[in-house]
């Protein structure tokens, strides 16, 4: 399946993954971030409960310097 993460298309061999699978794959588990899945924020407690499927759009954001 193909999903779009932060505007970049990525291909996975599986037909569905959880948000937890995704953060493990991206190796961002030690960082502070928030995830939006098809326009909806996923609470951390739901990371293993949701399914990400073909064509889904994800935004993963963090805090950076700004004024």
């Amino acid at each position: 399946m193909k999903i779009v993460i932060n505007g970049i298309e990525k291909e996975f061999k599986k037909n569905k993954i959880t948000p937890q699978d995704l953060v493990n794959f991206l190796k961002i588990t030690g960082q502070r971030y928030a995830i939006e899945h098809n326009g909806e924020i996923i609470p951390r407690s739901d990371f293993s409960e949701r399914d990400i499927r073909d064509g889904d759009m994800l935004e993963i954001v963090g805090a950076v310097g700004g004024g």
Binding site: Q31, Y33, V61, V64, G67
Partner: peptide
Amino acid sequence: VTVAIRRTNL
């Protein structure tokens, strides 16, 4: 301190 919210560098 203010911070901005941006896409995480993957």
